[in-house]
Design a protein around this nucleic acid. Structure first.
Lengths: 344, 344
DNA sequence: TTGAAAGCGCTAACAT
DNA sequence: ATGTTAGCGCTTTCAA
């Protein structure tokens, strides 16, 4: 009999439906070996009682954990918060709960968070954000994830390709290429890249796209300067100062994400440098505020919310023999931050 | 003896440290009743083995759950993502994991998410975002939370005062008051409020602050128009159209949060209405992009990240007899979106 | 198709 | 100060 003031347990349901514990469990799990009639009765009683399985007991007894672990670099970065939004949406539709960890773009801390999630026995791990060039870090992460998967865990990555797991991959190289072509078409010949930390694969990939565009248009590496900084707004500001000092003939800045682009715009505004009159600026990601900046930002649109949903949906499917990959496609969104160079 | 390919259990630690299960448990939990020497040995063995307690077993056996449930209206809204950032920060420092749910500003769905978190047996619930005027909803939420607390759960609210739990409360009324004073000081006499949904207590509180400022300055209700819409960017756009049509003599718009203010700015830009030349605009919250908008936004700064941390720290303390309240204070940040009215 | 019973790994009485 | 043992609520053999 149900204890007053306590949540009903499976025994309570079983008793009231006049079946055994095992039958009740089977009926609610939708497994077969239960007559339709009995299964129905059990389910009715369960909902009457407002029964919800205790996830701790269930998981301990060997059932699969129904929680999703999501690792992001930083939740209050719009790129990640939009991804998180997509993950949480789909998770809610599936009755799953999402645990979020921040790595702060520190590979070792990320590894620690990853281990924490595994120790917590989440059922699914979603790892988003750029990977690292450092082979040690990626190898350690791979090792943890492989062991996790061997115990039945499911994994998917977002924007990270060296993990040997299912992945949703933004079109970083093609996007970088498109941005550079756009600027070259406008007449720019002195382009500087405001790049994030050199150790991030996303930075390398986007940069590769930019370089290939220059080559395709017969320009030389000398026409392209690259300045590295933090992959954040603050990094964008700092890098801009450096660009203005060290590459004064620059007419266009390619920021490798929107956060940096916002820093670039902010620094240029402080210096009263007209955009795009004197300097064109482009970003990457198309976070939702990009359209509201001054001037509105030309950038590459990535469907972050959908990327989050897709990653979770990959992880919900049974594991395939070879890792699946989903490319996002990309779209150049031309707004007011780009125009012809001053001399054109 | 530890089983190959499996995580070590507490028994494995106990065996290897040559103590009983109970002693090992006590030692690791830091409870007393264990000699310093033995406790030390147990801890050393545990870390050698890489032992991490199974949270499902621990919780099932009656220990406190170490996960925090956080309910936000929407994670990809900067206001909430900054709060979430603060919560996750402090949680990580404490070794806790955070589960995030979105209510989508739907009171019934919020209730459902709340029940889901309780069913998941989280140890702490943090509920953020405006409350609702509807007494039924607030009463149901209170009832759930009260029951949850009766079973030892801890709760704190952020920006919500009718729940009878510890709360971190932004200075909504004082902030609204400060905004209105700022505009009146500049010479504005025709002010319209772009308000969020009428059912939200945050909207009501901020609006009350605005009204009181007008009264304090000898203005009448006729000098203040209020137009309600969604508490989002889209809502701000829609409301602006309405304001321009129905209150054409308006010289200043008070948006009751930054998201709406961004919509207002966007709509004014489409109409080529100069800000602040023809129309001043203010927001509320000071989300991090507010400084990067065109023009940069005058608004009330709220310390969102800190609010998240404070809420969790309240919940980590033992429950007090009466709910604790922490006010955030507020700061008027004057930027470029406000100036004297056109006729002044 | 159904039931009885043995754990899952841990905490918390209760003994010693 | 330390050990023994009975659960926590569920899933899953194994029997019937």
């Amino acid at each position: 009999m149900p204890r007053a003031g306590q949540r009903p347990r499976l025994v309570d349901v079983a008793e009231r439906a006049d079946v055994s514990l095992a039958t009740a469990s089977r009926a609610l799990a939708g497994r077969d070996g239960v007559s339709a009639e009995v299964a129905d009765r059990v389910r009715r009683v369960a909902s009457e009682l407002g029964y919800v399985a205790n996830p701790y007991a269930r998981t301990l007894a060997g059932g699969a954990s129904s929680t999703v672990g999501l690792i992001v670099h930083q939740v209050d970065d719009p790129y990640f918060s939009e991804i998180a939004g997509g993950v949480i949406q789909l998770a809610a539709e599936q009755g799953l709960l999402v645990q979020i960890c921040q790595s702060g773009r520190d590979p070792d801390y990320e590894l620690q968070q990853l281990r924490h999630l595994i120790a917590q026995r989440v059922g699914i791990i979603l790892i988003s954000g750029s990977g690292y060039d450092d082979p040690r870090v990626e190898a350690e992460a791979r090792a943890e994830l492989t062991a996790f998967q061997a115990h039945g865990g499911r994994v998917a990555a977002i924007g990270r390709h060296a993990l040997g797991v299912d992945a949703v991959l933004p079109d970083n190289e093609a996007g970088g290429n498109a941005l550079a072509h756009h600027l070259i078409d406008l007449g720019h010949r002195r382009i500087t890249v405001a790049a994030g930390s050199a150790g991030l694969t996303t930075v390398a990939d986007r940069l590769a796209g930019v370089s290939s565009a220059l080559r395709q248009r017969g320009m030389t590496p000398a026409d392209l300067a690259v300045v590295h900084g933090d992959f954040t707004r603050g990094g964008g500001r700092a890098v801009t100062e450096q660009i203005l000092n060290e590459h004064p003939d620059t007419t266009a800045i390619i920021a490798l994400n929107d956060a940096m682009a916002m820093g670039v715009l902010s620094a240029l505004r402080s210096r009263r440098i007209p955009v795009p009159g004197r300097m064109s600026v482009v970003g990457f990601d198309d976070v939702s505020v990009a359209a509201d900046l001054a001037p509105s930002l030309t950038t590459i649109r990535l469907p972050m919310t959908e990327m989050g949903r897709t990653a979770l949906s990959l992880a919900l499917k049974p594991r395939s023999t070879r890792p699946r990959r989903r490319s996002t496609g990309h779209l150049l969104v031309v707004r007011d931050s780009t125009g012809p160079p001053p001399t054109a």
